[in-house]
Design a binder for these strands. Structure first.
Length: 935
DNA sequence: CCATATTTTCTTTTT
DNA sequence: GAAAATATGG
């Protein structure tokens, strides 16, 4: 789309006043934003680092980045320094801002939804959970495990929303304070806190608080343009972040569609977008009403759905069709069925019948035949309603992918693994365990069951060592698999099953990591018992199976997903089945809710946390507008009486003249072609550490990042990071003209060293070692600190369309010889392979050149360990070229899902934590591996 | 038609 | 264990 409509042009060239782009579904929003950003970058005196663009997800960010880059390249514009333009989520930005400018936060790590809950449950008293009062007489206080999710929602709302604190019960306030205190004591951020803390510094008094001063100075000097996509989903705290970033006059552009606000139950505040014009001075509003995606029928129905939303909560607009898709009688059908099996069968019939119908993706492209991946089935709730269709598709062998099914723990394979830990906790005996594994078809033909049990029995001897870190769940899991001889190729069955089983086992490894992150230092016996209980009661609800996302290659398959997840996507044909009253629109939930903790009156606009009819209507609007041409809405009564009536949304559609209530012949007159899947290359963004694994051994990469296997947690974890962070502070201060002296070493280590998994003596040892290392570094480099050029420089290497490598250079410095050196710190005596290090630093050199236009002369490795050796080499041009080529190769093989093992046992394997899952470990290597891990 | 009793369920998900 | 939807009774 190189020619723009008048409205689009208006948006693209409006760069100096606050701009609100109201973008209807399918209006070419991303293209307009990208073009506008390119226009900003083309302005004289504007650097990429002057610009921030927020998206809702990382995936959307990758797409936006890619789009911007392709426009810049097409227009022949400079891409120098592009790595310093922030394109990403608000959470990512806030974290980045803090960890760049506020040394106290360098050591903080981020809790996920899952680890947050475990953290609160483990510390149920200290976190405030069990002392948090409720307004329900039946449950005077929140309870462990049962209410941790609710408690976390409340702590989130108290920070994200506008709260009248006088109306919040004192007990709740006290609980909230307990939680915050505990969070900081453990150096954790939850998702809200990253943004909250950033906002504190943005709003803070610069005379009172040093960090506020630093943060605000950076914003004042650097930030000139802020773009916020999906503005309708911004919550009040995020709005404050936006305010803070633009408080010194940066230009603000917000983009969104109030009709697509579907995350209000997470705090999204529609009024942000609806009243934007009143809250900012001199706002220019541009409405992109032209829908290029869908046929007239789809557009008109979408519009009619949106008009069901009360006008008071809407921006006036009328979506019109502007694309090339033509509506034909029979494209849109509204049908009722006697039961859900008939409905499922009909959907499959239609898909089979429509496969191969001619379809034109764009006005200027050739038609192709519809393929499996051109069909989507969208549900209000996949977990509740998708069952019958999944069954039918499996029966008919129609390829499909389901998203949003929480069924990982139902599978016999995972139940077998859970059995292992029931055995460990003494809840199951050995012969039952064996039966379980045999029934799950997980025993390789050569299985050494006795050996595997020996691993468990040794692990169950809890008097073996005094250090609790010895009783490592992850290591036990990996050793058990090794002893059993369970590897991808020894899993009984077909290759497809092997891959799926390994994916599940990898997910389980991920679950262990999550658990041990929180419970690592629990007494061994209790730790295993808690783990077994957690597996039984908590874990099943936490981990989704989504057998789809193995690999980067996109399968040609029908998509079954929720409307929420479908946001931003489109398909030629969309099915909206199970349109039942009380399901879609959904009836409200019972049980203890947010308002039993925080009174409704204390929160501004409390309604949005409840889920109103209006919200459901917006969701249905999103659902309808995903379709490009074919749209099928259907109803069948659900299993029980609550769901036996038709949804008002179904009736709404059936009443539209665009819909037929009975199908004719399948789109009579439309020619048939060979089915050909829409070709989409996924964007691949790799961090350097991921790239490193891909270089070293593609199969290790697969085990780690596609399957999710994690190596056992190490007790000394955090040591290297602490040293890095301490030196980062040193160099940042050096750039600001503050040369840190040796005496500061202790202080630096106290601030940055965080070793949560170390037992007390080890903590002391590590602390001493760190102080010594920092002191040594400061002594050795006293004279060259002032020649620091950059510290922690973010780089990005663009290899080919869709392949990007992100990384961070530890240090760039000028040597006595006036040469420019790119430096990487290492902190263990155990040397990384020199070839890998050389690759790494040459990637950085490439990135540095793309960032600054300057070529580095040298690469250096400074080892902070006394024994470690220093490397200093010239940057070699041929290597730069070949490294680029190798990244491209690696990216391509990733897309093709071609990730083979190394041909034979090699040096890399000796250092690979997951070698046991890959091949037989030679006896001599086994010995040295055991020595290295202290087993 | 209204008040009360009984039945039935307990989404959605980003960082 | 709470709330909404539906069934029941006047």
């Amino acid at each position: 789309m190189t020619s723009y409509t008048e409205a689009q042009k208006e948006a693209i060239v409006c760069l100096d006043e606050p701009l609100q782009i109201i973008a209807c579904a399918g209006s070419g929003k991303t293209q307009v934003i990208s073009q506008r950003i390119a226009a900003i970058l083309a302005r004289p005196g504007v650097e990429p680092r002057n610009l921030i663009a927020f998206t809702f997800t990382e995936k959307a960010a990758a797409e936006l980045k890619e789009r911007i880059l392709s426009i810049l390249e097409k227009d022949g514009l400079d891409t120098l320094g592009l790595a310093e333009m922030y394109v990403g989520t608000m959470h990512g930005y806030a974290l980045d801002l803090l960890q760049r400018l506020v040394p106290e936060t360098f050591k903080f790590s981020v809790l996920t939804e899952i680890t947050s809950r475990m953290f609160v449950d483990r510390n149920s008293r200290k976190s405030g959970l069990t002392v948090c009062p409720t307004l329900s007489s039946g449950t005077p206080y929140l309870r462990r495990f049962l209410h941790s999710r609710l408690f976390l929602q409340a702590t989130g709302v108290l920070r994200e929303d506008t709260v009248n604190w006088d109306l919040v019960p004192a007990g709740v306030v006290a609980s909230f304070e307990d939680y915050m205190k505990l969070l900081y004591a453990h150096a954790y951020f939850d998702f809200t806190e990253m943004i909250n803390l950033a906002v504190q510094f943005l709003e803070g008094d610069i005379d009172e608080d040093e960090s506020s001063g630093v943060v605000q100075q950076h914003i004042r000097e650097d930030i000139r343009y802020v773009v916020v996509d999906e503005y309708q989903d911004v919550n009040p705290l995020q709005e404050r972040l936006v305010r803070g970033l633009t408080q010194f006059g940066a230009n603000l552009c917000v983009v969104g569609d109030d009709d697509q606000t579907i995350y209000q139950w997470r705090g999204s505040e529609v009024s942000n977008i609806v009243t934007f014009k009143d809250r900012y001075e001199g706002v220019r509003q541009v409405t992109l009403a032209e829908n290029f995606r869908s046929s007239e029928g789809v557009v008109e129905v979408g519009r009619s759905v949106a008009e069901r939303i009360p006008d008071a909560n809407r921006l006036p607009k009328a979506m019109v069709r502007a694309g090339h898709q033509r509506w034909q009688r029979g494209d849109m059908i509204a049908r009722e069925f006697a039961d859900e099996y008939d409905e499922a069968a009909w959907i499959c019939d239609r898909i089979e019948a429509m496969r191969g119908l001619a379809f034109q993706d764009a006005a200027d492209t050739e038609a192709r035949g519809l393929s499996w991946s051109d069909f989507a089935v969208l549900y209000r709730s996949v977990a509740n309603d998708a069952g019958p269709l999944v069954e039918e598709m499996r029966r008919r062998e129609i390829p499909y992918v389901v998203k949003g099914l929480n069924r990982l723990f139902d599978s016999p394979e995972i139940q077998a693994v859970v059995g292992v830990f029931r055995y460990m906790a003494g809840l199951m005996d050995a012969s039952d365990l064996r039966d379980l594994w045999a029934d799950a078809k997980l025993l390789p033909s050569t299985a050494d069951w006795g050996g595997a049990m020996a691993v468990l029995d040794e692990g169950r001897d809890f008097d073996r060592g005094k250090r609790w870190g010895v009783y490592n769940i992850q290591r036990l899991y990996l050793e058990f698999m090794e002893a059993l001889g369970l590897r991808e190729e020894t899993v009984p069955g077909q290759p497809v099953r092997r891959e799926l089983v390994f994916y599940q086992l990898g997910k389980f490894s991920q679950a262990i990591s999550d658990f041990e992150q929180i419970y690592f230092n629990t007494a061994p016996k209790q730790k295993y018992e808690t783990f077994a209980a957690w597996l039984e009661h908590q874990a099943p609800g936490y981990y989704a199976e989504s057998d789809a996302d193995v690999g980067y290659a996109m399968p040609d398959a029908v998509t079954l997903t929720t409307v929420h997840q479908a946001k931003g996507m489109q398909w030629p044909a969309v099915f909206l089945p199970c349109l039942r009253a009380n399901r879609f629109p959904a009836k409200r939930q019972g049980g203890l809710g947010l308002f039993h903790v925080i009174p409704e009156t204390a929160v501004g606009d409390a309604d949005r946390y409840k889920g109103t009819l209006e919200d459901e209507t917006r969701l249905f609007y999103v659902a309808v507008t995903r379709a490009q041409k074919y749209l099928f809405v259907s109803f069948s009564p659900g299993g029980n009486q609550l769901y036996r009536r038709r949804s008002a949304f179904f009736d709404h559609c059936a009443a539209q003249q665009w819909f037929s209530t009975r199908e004719g012949g399948v789109a009579a007159g439309t020619p048939r072609l060979e089915p050909r899947a829409r070709h989409e290359t996924p964007n691949v963004t790799l961090s350097f550490s991921e790239l490193k694994y891909l270089f070293e051994c593609p199969y290790q990469f697969k085990l780690r990042f596609l399957y999710g296997f994690n190596p056992p947690l190490h007790e000394a974890l955090g040591y290297g990071k602490g040293l890095h962070d301490a030196l980062a502070e040193v160099h940042k201060r050096a750039i600001a003209g503050d040369l840190v002296r040796q005496e500061a070493a202790e202080d630096l280590v106290i601030r940055h060293l965080h070793t949560p998994y170390a037992y007390p003596e080890l903590k002391t040892t590590l602390h001493r070692a760190a102080v010594k290392a920092v002191k040594r570094y400061l002594k050795d480099h006293e004279s060259d600190l002032e020649r620091t050029v950059h510290s922690e420089k973010q780089i990005q290497v663009h290899v080919s369309p869709g392949i990007t490598v992100d990384g961070r250079i530890d240090l760039v410095r000028r040597l006595d010889t006036d040469e420019l050196a790119i430096v990487d710190f290492k902190s263990t005596a155990r040397a990384q392979d020199e070839d890998v290090t050389r690759d790494q630093l040459h990637v950085y050199a490439v990135g540095y050149e793309e960032l600054t236009g300057k070529r580095a002369d040298l690469i250096e490795v400074l080892n902070l360990d006394e024994e470690g050796k220093t490397i200093r080499e010239e940057v070699e041009d041929p290597l730069l070229v070949s490294v680029r080529a190798r990244i491209k190769e690696a990216g391509d093989s990733l897309r093709d899902n071609h990730l083979p093992r190394l041909p034979t046992w090699s040096e890399h394997c000796g250092k690979c934590d997951l070698a046991e899952l890959c091949r037989d470990v030679p006896p001599d290597a086994k010995r040295s591996r055991r020595a290295a891990t202290g087993r």
